[in-house]
């Protein structure tokens, strides 16, 4: 049996009387790209927020990297990188300041060196003094990804990372995710694009808070008769 990075059972979240996530089990094997597939409003964001400790589940139990998702959220936060759906770095800070801030929050050593490395890798070293708010959508997203993997997390959670991004940038992002996965990082990515789902190793398909089907990508596609629009 493969080792699990995320292992949660009966995860449930209600907002008032509305059940947003209903009794969902998620098992993500280490080093895999795990797709979180479903239409808008199906509870993908809420689930991801519960996995990284931003929301407290109303019911359920489980572990993330061996840490309890109810009690040890602070430990989880240190080892997880979470990229929000909407660009959520600071518009009024420069690119460099954003990266430096993140490095410091994660308590990294040699912050200025690591920042420079990250900026070079991004290809943004010449624009490091530009404020993040003035970047284009694609660049913002690349900056966010770079900042999220800065502390070399064991799990990367991405919430619809390609929303509002052009096809070329989308392809580049997925190539990058592939490389990170080969290096051993566990990746959980939510999407509602079929072609992106096909690039995942395993898929879970949820709609309106309920789990519809899970399994390897091919299994899910076969069972649900989902097709790529090409």
């Amino acid at each position: 049996m493969t080792e699990l990075a995320i292992d949660v059972k009966r995860l449930t979240k209600k907002f008032g009387s509305r059940i947003v996530v209903n009794n969902i089990d998620i098992q993500v094997p280490k080093g895999k790209i795990y797709g979180f597939f479903g239409p808008n409003g199906s509870g993908k964001t809420t689930t991801i927020r519960m996995l990284c400790g931003l929301l407290t589940p109303d019911a359920g139990e489980g572990t993330c990297l061996g840490y309890d998702i109810m009690a040890q959220t602070q430990m989880i936060r240190k080892k997880v990188g979470y990229m929000t759906q909407k660009f959520s770095f600071w518009d009024d800070l420069t690119i460099q300041e954003n990266v430096e801030f993140t490095a410091n929050i994660f308590g990294m050593d040699h912050v200025s060196e690591r920042t420079r490395e990250a900026l070079v890798k991004l290809g943004l070293q010449h624009r490091s003094d530009q404020s993040a708010g003035t970047l284009s959508g694609g660049w913002k997203q690349r900056l966010a990804l770079a900042a999220c993997i800065l502390h070399q997390p064991e799990i990367l959670l991405l919430d619809e990372p390609t929303a509002g991004v052009d096809p070329k940038a989308r392809r580049e992002l997925w190539d990058e995710l592939g490389r990170l996965s080969e290096d051993g990082m566990t990746i959980l990515v939510s999407t509602h694009y079929m072609d992106e789902a096909e690039r995942c190793h395993e898929l879970i398909y949820i709609a309106y808070g309920n789990l519809i089907v899970r399994g390897s990508t091919q299994q899910v596609i076969d069972q649900t008769h989902l097709k790529t629009l090409e």
């Binding site: 927020r49 990284c52 931003l54 997880v80 979470y82 929000t84 959520s88 770095f89 600071w90 518009d91």
Partner: peptide
């Protein structure tokens, strides 16, 4: 308002 709180809170801060 800008959603940066979500980012901040997902980081290990007290």
């Amino acid at each position: 308002e800008r959603g940066t709180m979500e980012n901040l809170l997902s980081m290990p801060v007290q």
